[in-house]
Amino acid sequence: MTSSVYKADTAKLAQLIASVNGKEGCWGPEELGDVLRHQLAAPLEVGGVSTVAQMVSISPEDERAISEIKNLADLFGHPRPPLALLELAKEFAKSNRECPHGPLPSEVAAVIYFAAIVTALLRCGKRITSLDDKSILAGLDWAVGQQWIGVQMRELFAEGHRLLAP
């Protein structure tokens, strides 16, 4: 490992030093699908139903749902997801989209953002965004145009498109 330093191109050594302040090493466009799949499968550490109940008023049905939902994939696939969790998911995605140095690539954050909005519309009949239908549809069109979003997201967005399309 050390010997490569003595053989390396000096510009590359300068690049290695500079990398500590740059985006080097971060996930590239070809890895967006893997990052999204990982995020959808990442455990939601909701800390138990009683904890959530202390923070927001939830119905017994929501309590059951929360105990069943282990990750975002579960949340977006649940027949009756708790609206509070969808709002949290949307806010989480939004904060990542707006933060250039956030842990999620902005494209992945955008997919989660629209997934939360569409799931709320489809499963809860609620709008959790101030975006109008046209803007949501534009977002869905963009998302389905991405090759890496996977089957679950593609089907969800197609369903959302059918609901909102004039």
Binding site: S4, K12, L16, S19, E24, G28, D34, V35, A42, P103
Partner: peptide, 23 residues
């Protein structure tokens, strides 16, 4: 950067080091 090898793919990285989330 130094050896010019491709970066370890994200999927392999998380499998190898057991990361639970992108964060």
């Amino acid at each position: 950067i130094l050896d010019g090898v491709p970066p370890m793919p994200y999927a392999q990285l998380i499998q190898r080091f057991g990361f639970e989330s992108p964060a």
